[in-house]
Simulated assay, not measured.
Amino acid sequence: MNWLLVILGAMVGAPLRYVTDRAVQLRHDTVFPWGTLVVNVTGSLVLGLLTGAAAAGHASPHLQLLIGAGLCGALTTYSTFSYETLRLTETGAGLYAAVNVVASVAAGLGAAFAGVSCAEALWP
């Protein structure tokens, strides 16, 4: 049953990642990977909220598998982040590559902490 929950979450997360990435990237005429940044930060926020809810006893292990491992696991993408950063470097956009790394790590961690803080406020 656990594997089914992860699959169901991933069935939503993977297409959501693709559609969101394309929609965001189409609105920006730049080589900077805004779409990947948006899905990774969003996934970090959702995972932080879920983690905070679980710590407060308001998220079942099944919900953690469905949303955490399934949806967030498929929504976020470290491999695409790495690939896009490497491509930026290879094409001479080293400054964009550095900004991508710093922004992704800082915003991702900030979003995760914000999610946990929101959960603590909702479920004291």
Rank of each mutant, 00 (worst) to 15 (best):
21 D>R: 12
28 H>E: 06
97 A>L: 10
55 A>H: 13
69 A>Y: 03
42 T>M: 15
50 L>W: 01
51 T>W: 08
98 A>C: 11
39 V>W: 12
61 P>F: 10
20 T>G: 01
21 D>Y: 11
78 Y>A: 13
50 L>Y: 02
59 A>W: 05
88 L>V: 07
48 G>D: 08
30 T>V: 13
92 G>S: 11
116 V>G: 00
118 C>G: 12
81 F>L: 15
109 L>H: 03
26 L>I: 08
117 S>G: 11
82 S>F: 04
52 G>N: 05
53 A>T: 08
78 Y>M: 15
37 L>G: 03
50 L>F: 10
35 G>P: 07
99 V>C: 09
98 A>R: 10
42 T>G: 15
79 S>W: 05
52 G>E: 02
118 C>V: 15
101 V>H: 02
98 A>T: 13
61 P>C: 09
113 F>C: 11
66 L>N: 02
71 L>T: 06
20 T>S: 15
64 Q>S: 08
35 G>V: 02
80 T>N: 08
61 P>Y: 07
44 S>M: 08
102 V>T: 14
35 G>D: 02
119 A>F: 00
93 A>Q: 15
40 N>I: 08
61 P>K: 04
32 F>D: 07
23 A>Y: 14
38 V>A: 14
31 V>F: 10
18 Y>T: 01
109 L>E: 01
94 G>Q: 06
75 L>R: 05
99 V>S: 08
90 E>R: 15
95 L>T: 13
34 W>C: 08
60 S>K: 01
23 A>F: 15
11 M>I: 09
46 V>Q: 06
109 L>K: 01
99 V>Q: 05
37 L>I: 06
89 T>G: 07
14 A>V: 12
97 A>P: 11
87 R>F: 04
98 A>H: 03
115 G>W: 02
21 D>L: 10
15 P>E: 04
95 L>S: 06
19 V>A: 07
42 T>Y: 04
68 G>D: 05
93 A>H: 15
89 T>S: 10
88 L>D: 11
118 C>R: 00
59 A>S: 03
86 L>V: 12
83 Y>K: 11
110 G>W: 05
73 G>M: 11
14 A>F: 09
58 H>E: 03
75 L>G: 13
51 T>S: 14
25 Q>A: 12
84 E>F: 02
63 L>S: 12
92 G>V: 13
113 F>W: 14
28 H>N: 09
105 V>R: 01
18 Y>G: 00
103 A>I: 14
93 A>M: 06
74 A>Y: 08
112 A>H: 02
109 L>C: 12
32 F>T: 09
73 G>V: 10
88 L>H: 03
52 G>P: 09
110 G>I: 09
41 V>P: 04
50 L>C: 13
44 S>A: 15
52 G>Y: 00
